[in-house]
């Protein structure tokens, strides 16, 4: 499946390989040598990154975050999906249908 689709709650997301990942002052930072790009996911982005180390449905990811943080479900959904779409555009995550 291509990475050109929009993120929805039913999709499965997981980390893409090939990045050097480190923690810096509580924030998750990554370096992709092939692309010559440096990424800072911040503190909460780092939590999301670790949660998708194994393939996880976006719905499950949102539910997990809502159980850990003081945030409304709708706000969490919108912001997490927006963040995941940026990760997808940079090729940092893989996106699959539940059935694939």
């Amino acid at each position: 499946m291509s990475n050109k689709q929009a993120i929805s709650l039913k999709l499965i997301v997981s980390q893409s390989a090939g990045n050097l990942v480190s923690d810096m002052d509580g924030e998750k930072v990554m370096l992709n040598i092939d692309k010559g790009k440096y990424y800072n996911l911040g503190q909460l982005g780092g939590v999301i990154w670790e949660l998708v180390e194994q393939p996880m449905a976006v719905q499950e990811l949102v539910s997990t975050l809502c159980s850990l943080y003081q945030v409304e479900q709708s706000e969490c959904e919108n912001q997490v999906i927006e963040f995941l779409e940026k990760l997808m555009q940079e090729g940092l995550i893989q996106v699959k249908n539940f059935s694939s």
């Binding site: 370096l31 990424y39 850990l68 003081q70 912001q79 963040f83």
Partner: peptide, 18 residues
């Protein structure tokens, strides 16, 4: 007790690098 939420953001920088 739940932690405080902050909007997740992705910062992207082009770097020059052997």
């Amino acid at each position: 007790m739940k932690k405080e939420w902050s909007k997740p953001e992705l910062e992207v920088l082009d770097v020059k690098m052997m």
